[in-house]
């Protein structure tokens, strides 16, 4: 479903701020894989997701989604394959627009924007049902501006937007990190339900090692722009956080230095 072949990315090359974010990244995701991604600060986790989404161009290497080489496609053209939820709840939605309008925009991901109505009556009814299933009390607030919602509600709406039109690949960039623990759990539960329901191929960065082990069928650990540990199925299910920390120390030769990860 996703193939990343030898991707390199260096930010600010040749300057004092040079940062080798990805150094020959290889990864193959099978259809239906739910992969959690962990790693230290600056390991290249977010860069990997941004490369897949086309936020910045790669220096070299190839990115193939569902058999199509998207390496040279601009961000908005790759969007038809991808559903994305970001760490910052502000990023995934348009604050000045209504909930229904945001959902309608997401429902047209990958389609030409025409002069037909932006939201149809039929869609409004569908959105209402969908929002009801979230159980956040949003079903009666279709015409509220998204800017009025809480961070958790905005992430829930973004998640709905990302999966409204079934993506080939769902990219979750620490999408619960900015939420309080209770809301974070709710959004993560919702994520698991939606992924299971539509059997979505998913790549989820998290700073919570318990979640990384508990959620999904595969786990990868990154360091210095590479994947240093890749485990799936039974072996993954048996992991403990102590195993992960030790694994990291053995592979990277240093302690895992993710501030948030150690605090959580």
């Amino acid at each position: 479903m996703l193939e990343i072949k030898g991707v390199h990315k260096t930010f600010n090359p040749g300057t004092i701020n040079e940062k080798k974010a990805l150094t020959g990244l290889d990864l193959v995701l099978n259809e239906g894989d739910f992969v959690t991604v962990i790693g230290g600060n600056g390991a290249g986790k977010s860069t990997m997701l941004n490369m897949i989404a086309g936020v910045y161009p790669v220096d070299c290497g190839n990115i193939i989604i569902d058999g199509i080489d998207v390496t040279k496609l601009p961000e908005h053209k790759r969007a038809k394959f991808l559903g994305r939820v970001f760490q910052d709840p502000m990023t995934g939605t348009a604050a000045n627009m209504e909930i229904a309008e945001n959902l309608a925009i997401a429902a047209r991901r990958g389609l030409a924007r025409t002069l037909k109505p932006g939201v149809t009556k039929k869609e409004k009814a569908e959105f209402k049902e969908l929002l009801k299933s979230l159980d956040l009390g949003l079903e009666d607030r279709l015409t509220s501006k998204v800017g009025l919602l809480s961070g958790g509600q905005r992430q829930a709406v973004t998640l709905l937007m990302a999966t409204l039109k079934k993506p080939k690949l769902l990219l979750l960039d620490e999408h619960t990190a900015a939420l309080d623990p209770k809301t974070a759990k709710k959004v993560l539960d919702m994520t698991q339900q939606i992924v299971a329901k539509d059997n979505l191929t998913t790549l989820m960065i998290t700073h919570n090692m318990h979640d990384a082990i508990r959620v999904g069928n595969r786990l990868i650990m990154m360091n210095n722009g590479k994947i240093i540990f890749d485990v799936s199925g039974e072996d993954k299910a048996k992991l403990t956080t102590a195993d992960l920390l030790e694994k990291f120390k053995n592979s990277a030769g240093e302690d895992l230095d993710n501030d948030r990860m150690l605090l959580s």
Binding site: A53, E75, H76, K80, T91, I105
Partner: peptide, 26 residues
């Protein structure tokens, strides 16, 4: 016009470019 699909996508562009591009808007 701003109630059409195209109009919505223009409003989204002005409001949040990252969101717009993530949803396939040029």
């Amino acid at each position: 016009f701003f109630g059409t699909e195209l109009g919505h996508s223009i409003r989204a562009t002005g409001c949040n470019q990252a969101m717009a591009r993530a949803n396939g808007i040029n």
